[in-house]
Nucleic acid binder design. Structure first.
Length: 762
RNA sequence: GGGAGUUUAGCUCAGCUGGUUCAGAGCAUCUGCCUUACACGCAGAGGGUCGGGGGUUCGAAUCCCUCAACUCCCACCA
């Protein structure tokens, strides 16, 4: 037999993946005779291509799902993608810009047509790449967060939460890009690391009916006309007597009160703060506490409007006005001091313009009450986080949970189902017709063509938080009880069977964005947690500990790696050094180690396969000893393996089987029973050796699915349905002969002796 | 600024409720070997006052205090 000394993964991987698919091994249906084991994939962005983070994440999921499948469970891994509103919209806008098309020149429908085309073209790439990794997903169940049924589920949930009183419309400071004329999410606002130089101006305000002044410090004199109060710290002796007095705003002489608020820092500037609720987040909140007026002096494009009350500034850019204000203040003798200082200024990621805090109407979910059960369930270990340290982080977030702003000023996403009459009255309903009906009861002569739908879409997470329920169609008409606002679980066979899912494998940075919210939605709609365990992976970094990123160019292309080393090698490479919650410092050496391991197994196979068996030979005594020893060793290691799996210690689990195969099976056992060159082996030993091999291949299969399947079929003739992927998971036997495993014991020494003799001979 | 976490061999990490598998593993390193399964390999070897300091204890990598360094999350200062 002439098999290459090098294992070549490319020749076997595609073949087996196809075989598994053809045989339907990935597909799962509710089966009362079997225990379910379900994982829903964290849906990657449709914009995405596979990166190293996905590799780690999905390898872990595949390992878990394959093991469950072998354990005879009904294993179901649901794949899919996320529409990722911000990221995708940005991508499509960029693509259009390259073609010379401006988003602003398109209608909403035209833009969405482009977006869908884009999605159809690129949205499936990442799933195809997952197949190369060996991911054994139930592809028939692939979902997308903007599939028609998913879309209507999201809308239905919005309406339901609105009717339950959890959703409200309120004012909120958002980041506004004056150049692009759009709102930005916090993620799109960048700060320079060392801050930026700016000037702090000290301006005096006259105290009404007095000759005295009060001096305040500001970076933004152009907002002075929006001032509605001066705030001081209540414990500040310097200003106590001023509290309650009136002060005049320079130039416009508006009377504003001096108020006391703990927010004010006595040590900064003069200890007096001018309060401009329309142009600063904190000021806005002070305004709320003290019932202050909001005077918004800015237009959307960053110019001043007539609310500033100074006609010469109307229509002028805020930075021009700043300069002029400084000049005017100086001339009036009201500018007391100008000092340079370093401050952090937010700039738009897209246009680099200074971001303006802007007050606008947004939609919110009230979080306090709806999240109570989600808080408790993690607290009480009903849901377990791995590693457990994240429980602290989770608790901290839950205890300080803020209302969730779910509206986004974008087009790609689920459009908010709120409909407005011309006078601003609105109704929330699943369809425009229903909304019209509701509105008509208040405005009898309202025509349907006069109502308009809210232009905004929902935050991406406001769709993906339904993922573990929606992928099983939980919100469709058949199962959703809109009177109770609950899902009738008993009617939905799949939810009844697969939900709660077993484990969620995801990155810690989305613990709040996604994981916490899925838990909330689970209790709200299913009265039940969405999953029992949460495995939080680390971040994949490069050798120097830097995050992998496109701009650094330090991320290898996973598909190249698979081509060069094989999927099995890449999978084990990812797992060799990544305990839960720890960052993985990626080094190609790890993948090489995986490849070397595959090669080692391949050569063990070549050795065993090459032996000639003579059934007339009697079994040598020392082979008997070797067999008893290995049997004990295997049982011991399998027990260890199981323990590691139970604790989600994937690296340790892999290391157990790695050492068992390399050290114990290859280096010790095979060397001991190996017949002399050219001589046959007795049948008893041979059969036992093959059966050990099978056991080891099975235990390794979740980690290295391809080579194990290949050798499973190579070591013995088998039917095409007799595949290792559906083979039986090896259980640790009870026969652990500890005395034989202990160094120093008589038996162990005997084995060592035999081995040493063999080595010496070689 | 608020919170959490980490610090054990050159690197990545195990070490559960303090005491004979407590100083471990893999990789890397060094020394021999191209021995008909495998040099993507074999056989062997070296390497750490468990971040610093203090304390509790008969006894601490393991518990307490303190200092230092690093990481992450959240909020952001007129």
């Amino acid at each position: 037999m002439s098999l290459s000394t090098k294992y070549s993964p490319s020749e076997v991987e595609g073949k087996w993946y196809k075989h598994w698919m053809d045989k339907g091994f990935f597909h799962s249906e509710p089966n009362p005779a079997k225990e379910p084991y379900c994982i829903v994939i964290p849906p990657p962005n449709v914009t995405g291509v596979l990166h190293m983070g996905h590799m780690l994440n999905n390898t872990i999921q595949d390992v878990l799902i394959r093991k469950a499948r072998m354990e005879g469970k009904e294993a179901c891994w649901v794949p899919g993608t996320d529409h990722a509103s911000i990221a995708t919209e940005a991508r499509v806008v960029a693509m259009l810009r390259e073609k010379g098309i401006k988003k602003s020149s398109l209608s909403r429908d035209e833009f969405l047509k482009y977006a869908w085309e884009w999605k159809e073209k690129y949205g499936g790439i990442i799933l195809e790449q997952l197949k190369k990794l060996g991911a054994s997903c139930d592809w028939e169940r692939t979902s997308f967060t903007m599939d028609p049924h998913y879309y209507s589920s999201v809308i239905r949930v919005f309406v339901d939460l609105y009717n339950k009183g959890y959703i409200y419309r309120g004012l909120r400071m958002i980041n506004w890009d004056c150049e692009a004329n759009t709102a930005l999410s916090n993620e799109e606002v960048l700060y320079k690391e060392d801050g930026e130089r700016s000037v702090l101006y000290s301006v005096r305000y006259k105290i009404k009916d007095s000759k005295d002044y009060v001096i305040i410090a500001t970076q933004r004199p152009e907002t002075i006309m929006g001032d509605v109060a001066i705030a001081v710290n209540p414990s500040d002796e310097r200003y106590k007597k001023l509290i309650g007095k009136k002060v005049l705003v320079p130039f416009i002489n508006r009377e504003i009160p001096v108020i006391a608020d703990d927010y004010v820092d006595k040590t900064f500037g003069t200890g007096c703060l001018k309060v401009t609720p329309a142009h600063d987040v904190n000021d806005y909140e002070i305004g709320l506490r003290h019932n202050l007026q909001v005077i918004d002096t800015l237009n959307d494009d960053g110019t001043l409007n007539e609310k500033c009350e100074i006609p010469k500034f109307y229509g002028k850019d805020r930075f021009v006005v700043r300069k002029e204000m400084v000049k005017d203040l100086r001339e009036a003798g009201d500018l007391m001091k100008e000092e340079e200082f370093i401050t952090r200024i937010g700039r738009s990621e897209r246009t680099n313009t200074v971001v303006e805090p802007k007050l606008s109407l947004q939609w919110f979910v009230k979080m306090k009450e709806i999240s109570r059960k989600a808080y408790q369930s993690v607290e009480e270990d009903e849901i377990k986080l791995h590693p457990a340290k994240f429980k602290n982080t989770y608790r901290h977030w839950m205890e300080n949970v803020r209302d969730w702003c779910i509206s986004r000023q974008l087009w790609w996403g689920h459009r908010i189902p709120a409909y407005y009459a011309p006078d601003g009255t609105f109704a929330v309903a699943e369809t425009e017709a229903e909304a019209h009906k509701i509105l008509k009861s208040q405005i009898p002569n309202l025509k349907s063509e006069d109502i308009t739908q809210d232009p905004d879409v929902l935050d991406t997470w406001a769709s993906s938080w339904l993922w573990p329920i929606e992928v099983f169609n939980g919100f469709s008409d058949e199962y959703f009880d809109d009177v109770k606002g609950k899902i009738n679980v008993a009617k939905n066979k799949e939810l009844a069977y697969y939900y709660p899912t077993n484990v969620l494998v995801t990155a810690p940075e989305i613990l709040f964005f996604w994981v916490a919210r899925m838990i909330i939605a689970g209790y709200e709609y299913m009265d039940q947690k969405p999953f029992g365990d949460v495995y939080l992976t680390g971040i994949v970094r490069d050798k120097q500990g830097r995050k992998m990123s496109k701009s650094l160019g330090n991320s290898p292309d996973p598909l190249d790696l698979i081509t060069n080393f094989g999927a099995d090698a890449v999978r084990t490479g990812m797992l060799f050094s990544s305990p839960a919650g720890n960052d993985l410092l990626y080094d190609e050496k790890l993948v090489e180690q995986g490849r070397n391991f595959a090669n080692k197994i391949w050569n063990a196979f070549r050795l065993v396969k090459g032996w000639e068996v003579d059934s007339s030979l009697s079994q040598p005594e020392e082979n008997k000893t070797a067999i008893t020893w290995l049997e004990s060793k295997i049982n011991q290691s399998l027990a260890e393996l199981e323990d590691h799996f139970g604790k989600y210690r994937m690296s340790d689990a892999l290391m157990s089987i790695y050492k068992l195969i390399w050290d114990d099976y290859c280096s010790w056992y095979l060397e001991m029973i190996k017949p002399e060159f050219g001589k046959p082996i007795d049948k008893v030993t041979y059969d036992k050796t093959v059966s050990f091999f099978e056991t080891l291949l099975k235990a390794l299969h979740p980690f290295m699915p391809f080579i194990t399947e290949e050798l499973w079929h190579g070591i013995k003739d088998r039917q095409e349905n007799d595949c290792i992927i559906v083979g039986s998971w090896p259980k640790a036997g009870s026969s652990i002969n500890n005395s034989i495993l202990e160094e120093g014991s008589i038996a162990f020494d005997l084995i060592a002796q035999i081995r040493n003799a063999r080595n010496a001979k070689g």
